[in-house]
């Protein structure tokens, strides 16, 4: 599960996002942790389950709420070499969404495949 890299041992980190973006602080905090963690050059993946898929939807406009719209930041993840984003297929479908409704390219996976991805990690952080 681990491999040697130039800077030491790179572990496989999975950040699991289960909450909608603005009803709580979890989504924003998770993204902050991902960005901070990315500096350590680990093997990072993000998973979006349940209401977590709402974090990625296009067209978010938070001016009326006067809070930060953090959905554009997902598009910067590529600069941080974070490119593995997995989205639960059933969650998207139950919410009337498809991959085309999301701000970044993702891999849409079944719950079974998602379970396999989780199984392959060294560290899982859930938000």
């Amino acid at each position: 599960m681990t491999e040697e890299s130039a800077g030491g041992i790179a572990k496989k980190f999975l950040y699991v996002n289960r909450r909608a973006p603005y009803g709580s602080i979890y989504g924003l905090e998770s993204l902050e942790v991902v960005l901070i963690g990315a500096a350590f050059e680990q093997d990072v993946s993000l998973a979006f389950l349940g209401d977590g898929v709402f974090q990625l939807t296009k067209g978010q406009d938070t001016k009326g709420l006067e809070v930060k719209n953090f959905s554009p930041t997902f598009r910067a993840l590529e600069d941080y070499d974070v490119t593995k984003l997995y989205v639960e297929k059933e969650a998207l479908e139950a919410r009337g969404l498809s991959a085309a409704d999301l701000v970044v390219p993702v891999e849409v996976v079944s719950a079974q495949r998602m379970a396999e991805i989780m199984e392959a990690q060294d560290v899982i952080l859930s938000f």
């Binding site: 709402f54 067209g59 009326g64």
Partner: peptide, 13 residues
């Protein structure tokens, strides 16, 4: 509530 709808990108749905 419209500001909550817009924040979540749902205005067209």
């Amino acid at each position: 509530l419209k500001p909550d709808v817009e924040a979540r990108g749902m205005q067209n749905r």
